Amino acid sequence: KVILLEDVKGLGKKGDVVEVKDGYARNFLIPQGLAVEATKGNLKEL
């Protein structure tokens, strides 16, 4: 699961917690600054 930092077409809006494949999160969303891993600490910051 990841928390979206920006609106991502076809996935969700900023602040949404979405389930995506590990590779998509690690190789695209997180490096592009579009999402962060949905850890307990990150979820509390919402």
Rank of each mutant, 00 (worst) to 15 (best):
V20D: 07
D16G: 04
R26Q: 14
G12R: 00
E19Y: 11
G12F: 00
K14A: 10
L5S: 03
E45W: 05
D22W: 08
V17C: 06
I3C: 05
A25W: 05
V20L: 05
T39D: 07
A38W: 08
D22S: 13
L43F: 06
K13G: 08
R26K: 13
R26N: 13
R26G: 11
D22T: 10
Y24D: 05
V17K: 05
A25L: 11
A35D: 01
V36E: 08
G12P: 00
L43Y: 05
L5R: 08
G33S: 05
E37D: 10
G12W: 00
I3L: 10
N27K: 10
L11S: 02
K14N: 04
D22P: 11
L34F: 08
G23R: 06
G33E: 05
D16H: 06
L29M: 02
D22K: 08
K9F: 12
K44Q: 14
V18K: 05
E37F: 14
D7M: 06
V8K: 02
L34R: 05
V17L: 11
I3F: 05
A25Q: 04
V20N: 01
A35M: 01
N42T: 07
V17G: 03
K40R: 06
V2Y: 10
K9L: 13
E45V: 02
T39P: 11
K21L: 14
V20P: 03
Q32M: 13
L43T: 08
K21M: 13
V2P: 00
V20W: 01
Q32G: 10
L34V: 10
N42E: 07
Y24H: 07
L5Y: 03
L43V: 06
E45A: 05
V18Y: 03
K14D: 02
L5K: 09
K1H: 13
T39M: 07
T39F: 04
N27I: 05
N42M: 08
E45I: 06
V36W: 03
V8I: 10
D7C: 12
I30Q: 02
G10H: 09
G12C: 01
E6Y: 11
D7K: 05
L4A: 00
V8D: 01
N42R: 12
T39A: 06
T39E: 06
G10Q: 05
L29N: 00
V36A: 12
A38H: 09
N42V: 06
L11M: 06
Q32I: 05
G12M: 00
A35H: 00
V17S: 05
N42I: 06
G10K: 05
F28L: 13
E45M: 03
A35C: 04
N27L: 10
K1Y: 07
L29Q: 01
Y24P: 03
A35F: 01
L34D: 02
V18H: 02
V36I: 12
T39L: 07
K13M: 07
F28M: 12
A35K: 00
I30M: 04
K14P: 03
E45K: 06
N27M: 09
N42D: 12
D7Q: 05
V17Q: 06
L5A: 04
G15W: 11
V20M: 03
G10R: 06
V20R: 01
D16E: 11
I30S: 02
K9W: 10
K13C: 12
I30C: 05
Y24Q: 04
A35V: 04
K9N: 12
I3T: 06
E37T: 09
K21W: 10
G12H: 00
L46Y: 04
V8L: 08
K40I: 15
D22M: 07
G23H: 14
R26H: 12
T39K: 06
G10S: 07
V20S: 03
D7T: 11
L4E: 00
K9S: 11
K44C: 11
L29D: 02
V17H: 06
G41K: 15
D22C: 10
K13Q: 12
E37A: 13
L5I: 11
V2G: 01
K1F: 10
L11D: 01
V36P: 01
K14F: 04
K21F: 13
E6I: 12
L46A: 15
L11Y: 07
D22I: 09
L11A: 03
K44I: 14
G33F: 07
K14Y: 04
K9V: 14
V17D: 02
L5D: 01
V20F: 03
K14M: 07
I3K: 06
V20Q: 02
E6R: 12
I3A: 04
A38S: 08
L4V: 01
V17Y: 09
G23S: 12
E45H: 10
D7N: 10
G15P: 00
D7V: 05
E37G: 06
G23P: 11
E6V: 13
L11K: 02
I3S: 03
K21G: 14
V20I: 09
L29F: 02
V18F: 04
L29Y: 02
E6Q: 13
K9R: 12
K9H: 13
V2E: 00
G33N: 10
L43A: 05
K1N: 08
V36F: 04
K14H: 04
L4W: 00
G41F: 02
A35Y: 01
L29E: 02
K9I: 14
A25M: 15
D22G: 08
Y24S: 04
E19Q: 14
D22N: 09
V20T: 07
G41W: 01
L43M: 05
L5P: 01
A25C: 08
E45S: 09
G10W: 09
R26M: 11
K44M: 12
I30W: 03
G12T: 01
V17I: 11
R26D: 14
L46R: 15
K13P: 02
E6D: 11
G41L: 06
K44S: 10
V17P: 02
V18Q: 02
V8S: 02
E37P: 13
L43D: 15
Q32L: 13
V18N: 01
E37K: 07
L5C: 10
K13R: 11
F28S: 10
A25H: 03
L29V: 01
K21E: 15
L43S: 05
G23A: 14
I30P: 03
E37M: 12
G33L: 06
F28D: 08
I30F: 12
G33T: 02
Y24W: 10
G41V: 14
A38C: 13
K21I: 13
T39H: 07
K9M: 13
K14R: 12
K14I: 08
G33M: 07
L43Q: 04
L5T: 07
L34C: 06
L29A: 01
D22F: 08
K13W: 09
L4D: 00
G10A: 05
E6L: 14
V2F: 11
A25P: 02
